[in-house]
């Protein structure tokens, strides 16, 4: 018996999910952050964020097709984290890193928070 592992399968699947998002195919929720709106797939949001996992496993909320986030959330920070969810790449602009980290805390994305923390400490030891 043999087993063939396609080592780039996970990244190929993620790329296709991101293509589906950009073409708005089977997206099933709109995330409202202040006045900006983001279309996404609930399953991808749940897979990446503890907050969205909690929301969409709650039988009272799982059928919602629009979710408003706390107004303290920065839309740019959210956009960067949503992009990370669908690409595995986290863009860290100097001016946004605190907003990104705070948004990751809010979205309960602990591993991203830890990585941001280490990045900040390494780039600014003072």
């Amino acid at each position: 018996d043999s087993c063939i592992q396609f080592t780039r399968h996970a990244s190929d699947v993620l790329l296709n999910l991101n293509r589906l998002r950009s073409r708005d195919i089977l997206t099933d929720v709109t995330i409202l952050v202040n006045r900006q709106q983001f279309r996404a797939h609930k399953t991808v949001l749940m897979a990446c964020s503890g907050l969205f996992y909690t929301i969409f496993t709650d039988s009272l909320k799982c059928n919602l097709n629009a979710i408003s986030l706390d107004p303290k959330v920065d839309p740019e920070g959210f956009a960067i984290l949503l992009e990370f969810m669908y690409t595995s790449r986290l863009t860290l602009k100097e001016s946004l890193i605190i907003a990104i980290m705070n948004t990751a805390i809010y979205l309960q994305m602990d591993h991203v928070v830890d990585t941001c923390h280490r990045f900040i400490k390494s780039s600014d030891p003072s």
């Binding site: 996992y53 595995s88 309960q108 994305m109 602990d110 591993h111 990585t115 990045f119």
Partner: peptide, 21 residues
């Protein structure tokens, strides 16, 4: 992503969904 210095993070990136709640 040319021009941006890319740091490879080998650790876990996201939470693990439990087999059952």
């Amino acid at each position: 992503y040319e021009g941006v210095n890319t740091i490879k993070e080998m650790g876990r990136s996201i939470h693990e969904i439990p087999r059952q709640d």
